[in-house]
Nucleic acid binder design. Structure first.
Lengths: 204, 204
DNA sequence: TAGAAATTCTAATCTGGTTTAGAATGAGGA
DNA sequence: TCCTCATTCTAAACCAGATTAGAATTTCTA
């Protein structure tokens, strides 16, 4: 293997591993778990299929890593963006920022995120454990945001914020199933999703 | 084959075919396309795997039929419910009814609907043609509803109803990924989804 | 209730894709 | 340069399921 103290992460070896992982994310995000052949991944990465086994123990191990990285990065990204929000911002403002960050990251920046979202419910159980832990953390991030917003009176008191949160995340996740950058503007999408939260959950 | 003029749809043969189809819908809704083995379907239906080939040409043909039936039934159900709405109802009222019908049908009444929703983006291209046609009709139903509501002034004029509609359908479709009847009340879910539309899209 | 047709089964085959074996290549250090 | 280790390749083994063959059974009709 590599990527240790003796071999810097930019070594040829580490780059190849990364290329394979990127390729897997790309194919997985496009074709889904069932449609992803190791041969396709290898072709995209520019190697022969057996080369994958030098870096990953099995097809499933490769898939699991993609899923985990995807879930992990989405969370990190949204956390970072939220951390940069100025002090005085309302919780509703923060939610707008989170919606923006989630959507843009998922659609523009990361095949990993897309792969993770699309396949979460389609991979064998054993592959879900580690990614699920990440998703739980991400879920909590949103829960905290909703709870704080409702306590601050920025969200209708009678709204079931747990259900609303799950519906919102679902709406945003499902975007990967229909989004086509050529026919729609990302700005418009973000604005509409934000309106769905601001008016759907916020005070009249 | 059977189910012709000479063999009524309640004949043993037709019943077996139905049992296999039901079993396929059940397994598909639970395990997804990749996880669905013909052997599992056969076991649930109470036959041996090869018996399936007496009724269906191939695994994919069986899957395709489940997907189509699922999409078809959701549309029929929502159409029926909408047709029963009294004359004077507002378009917003109709949308509330449609949300209710969609969610209850998908979660309570139909493994077919769940199978169709969950696997739409995961089956090979050829299997999507017929189901996609159904989905297009269903999509139009919602589009018409949104257009009418906005023209009637029941929806904010500045809202992008196409994007909002896709977000809403996504939110409702994704419910199959997290819904657990034991931990949540269906009524609460329906009410929250309705609120998301009424306040999220409706006039203040 | 015999015989034909329909249905379902067991056993075998086929297939595409993953995985393993082991040889070839290439890069880096003595 | 030569040797060693890392990396990648080609060829072959392996496997889990789908599918087919053909026999056995059940159902229906006359």
């Amino acid at each position: 293997m590599s990527d240790t103290a003796t071999t810097p992460p930019t070594s040829k070896s580490a780059q190849t591993r990364q290329r394979i992982l990127d390729a897997a994310a790309e194919v997985l995000s496009r074709k889904g778990y069932a449609g992803t052949r190791l041969g396709d991944v290898a072709a995209v990465a520019g190697v022969q299929a057996p080369a994958i086994y030098y870096y990953f123990g099995s097809r499933d191990e490769l898939v699991e890593e993609v899923m985990w990285v995807g879930a992990h990065r989405v969370r990190l990204h949204v956390e970072e963006v939220l951390a940069a929000v100025p002090e005085g911002a309302t919780y509703m403002d923060r939610m707008m920022v989170a919606v923006d960050a989630h959507l843009r990251f998922e659609l523009q920046l990361s095949d990993y995120a897309t792969a993770s979202i699309r396949n979460a419910g389609h991979v064998p159980e054993q592959l879900r454990v580690r990614p699920a832990a990440e998703e739980a953390l991400y879920s909590r991030l949103w829960r905290d945001l909703f709870v704080a917003a409702q306590q601050a009176g920025e969200i209708r008191a009678d709204l079931d914020i747990n259900v609303f949160r799950l519906l919102l995340l679902g709406a945003m996740n499902w975007v990967v199933e229909w989004w086509n950058p050529r026919t729609r503007s990302l700005d418009e999408l973000v604005a509409t999703a934000q309106a769905m939260v601001r008016h759907g959950a916020g005070q009249p």
